[in-house]
Design a protein around this nucleic acid. Structure first.
Lengths: 207, 207
DNA sequence: CCTACCGATCGGTAGG
DNA sequence: CCTACCGATCGGTAGG
């Protein structure tokens, strides 16, 4: 019943058929490759291979390779921005705001490892015209930490002598290293990691 | 007295003469460009431009672009290795050993910003055959921190409940972020930065 | 999404 | 260290 189609044909079946991918597929896989191999270490043909189509076919979905980088990074930066806005609007005490920042940051990184890694490591390859906008988002995010730390000092939760610039740099150093060692297959859950980080950070900040 | 040479000549002086550079010049400038633009974002012609010669002329000094990357990273890793060995051989108390690791690490990074940045960010682009060797050096360096932390717990200087793997990761997260924010033109000296870091870290570790 | 390209640039070599 | 190249690969386009 099933022998006619292929058995007599001398023409071998194509090893791969044309596939249909969405724009989101392209952006998502690009994020993974940029994170793994770097922006300049990833060719459009590499990206096509990973999606099962030709490099040139990608241009049915996107305008340019740079566009992919900008979109991935801007989306990532937007996630952190939203977190900071939400925490600031919560009206909770500074120490609790810092806890929410840490927990939220860890959640964003662990849920978006590729995007976070691309944001942190490939930002320098952004086109001139887009870089300023994204640097401004990063600066605003750092400012959120400084504000919370300053509030905590005023409330007496954190040391009076603390330099908020330095302290914010230290806290973000810890948070921004997460993408380098977090293992999704590891035993420790994101919430547990966030707790360890918050505990370590608060000890460093307390009077 | 000085008008004869150039005034009558119809042949314009060459805008740039051939220059003589040492192999060390090539390696040093490559380190800077790899740090600034990434390994794949730097072409041999870029590197030649920066040195005042052609990209193809670089091959009088080196065998390949990969060789440059391996050399820069391996030298950098060697500096951290030496620090760890020296501290381990000092025979001082664990807490003091940690202090020396922090101070030494900061000194290496601030004295070798380009090499440190290349080591941290471009290591994934190492050729297969060299990667294992350098990953092993990094692992040994992390082990030095774990050993010191375990010693500090045994001595009662650090919290008994501390997970030395996690704690070492946190300490190295702080140290390895330094190349991203240290400003050689800034007011804070490396020694002052090391002190702030050590203070923050010890607070996070103490009982 | 593929076929069939394009000019530009890549790392690298031979010979001086 | 330069001249004069090389084959391979790059991002991207026209037309279907």
């Amino acid at each position: 019943m099933s022998s006619v189609e292929g058995a007599v044909s001398a023409v071998p079946a194509p090893t791969r058929r044309a596939v249909r991918r969405s724009r989101d597929d392209v952006v998502r896989v690009a994020g993974r490759l940029f994170a793994e191999r770097g922006f300049h270490g990833t060719s459009m043909r590499d990206l096509g291979d990973e999606l099962g189509l030709l490099g040139s076919s990608l241009y049915a979905h996107i305008g340019s390779k740079n566009e992919l980088l900008v979109e991935i990074i801007e989306e990532g930066a937007g996630l952190f921005q939203s977190l900071a806005d939400q925490v600031a609007a919560s009206g909770t005490a500074p120490r609790e705001q810092l806890r929410r920042l840490v927990v939220g940051h860890v959640a964003i990184v662990t849920d978006n490892l590729d995007r976070a890694a691309t944001l942190l490591n490939e930002g320098r390859h952004l086109p001139e015209g887009d870089r300023g906008r994204i640097v401004a988002m990063r600066d605003r995010y750092q400012d959120a930490y400084r504000t919370v730390l300053a509030g905590g000092i005023a409330a007496g939760d954190f040391r009076a002598g603390l330099d908020v610039h330095v302290a914010a740099t230290f806290v973000l150093s810890l948070l921004n290293a997460l993408d380098r060692w977090y293992d999704p297959a590891g035993a420790r859950q994101p919430e547990a990691i966030a707790e360890l980080l918050f505990d370590f950070v608060v000890r460093g900040l307390e009077p």
